[in-house]
Every structure is written in structure tokens, then in C-alpha cells.
């Protein structure tokens, strides 16, 4: 299954609405997403894309933007 940026943004919108995921690149640095949201994202990635995000990949650089998160999920999907 090909995972697109739109899929990831759709997943993020389910977790927290009213965020401009297309342009925001400081989701963690500006506390737009907190630790609860990150865990919700980990859970949603597992459910929707069958991708398990390990704790070692939970770093701000991977969660600061939808694009970075999309790249992470694509990489993990490829590794499987």
C-alpha cells in the first residue's frame, strides 16, 4: 500500500483538528502536539497503515511536520 501525505494529514486531523498540517513545521517545538497526541499518532499509524513506530523514532524531528511524519511512516513501511 502506498502511503501518501494526504493519508497522513487525514490521520492527523482525526487526532487534532484545526491545525494547518500542510504548512506547520513546528508541531512539537510549538507544543501543538503533546505526548498524548504523539501516542495517539503511534496508535493510529499501527491501525491505519500497519506500521509500528518504535520509541527510538519518537523524536521531535520526526513529528514536527506532516511531511516528516509521512517520511517516517513510509520508511518504516518499506523496512517491513
Amino acid at each position: 500500500m502506498d502511503i501518501t501525505l494526504d493519508d497522513v494529514i487525514e490521520m492527523l486531523e482525526d487526532i487534532q483538528e484545526d491545525v494547518d498540517y500542510e504548512t506547520c513545521t513546528t508541531l512539537i517545538d510549538d507544543h501543538v502536539l503533546d505526548s498524548f497526541d504523539i501516542l495517539a499518532i503511534v496508535s493510529a499509524a499501527d491501525d491505519e497503515f500497519d506500521v509500528s513506530i518504535p520509541a527510538k523514532d519518537i523524536i521531535p524531528a520526526n513529528f514536527n511536520s506532516a511531511q516528516a511524519l509521512c517520511k517516517l511512516i513510509q520508511r518504516l513501511a518499506d523496512e517491513d
Partner: peptide, 20 residues
């Protein structure tokens, strides 16, 4: 603690099952 206990613990399979 966040990097080496909180996240590794919170993303374990039993925790994910608990969430669901």
C-alpha cells in the same frame, strides 16, 4: 525519563492493547 522510560513503555504491545 521521557526518552528512555515513558515512550518505550507507552508504545509496548500491552499498552497499545490497553488503549484499544
Amino acid at each position: 525519563m521521557r526518552d528512555h522510560v515513558f515512550y518505550p513503555l507507552a508504545v509496548t504491545k500491552p499498552m497499545k492493547a490497553l488503549n484499544k
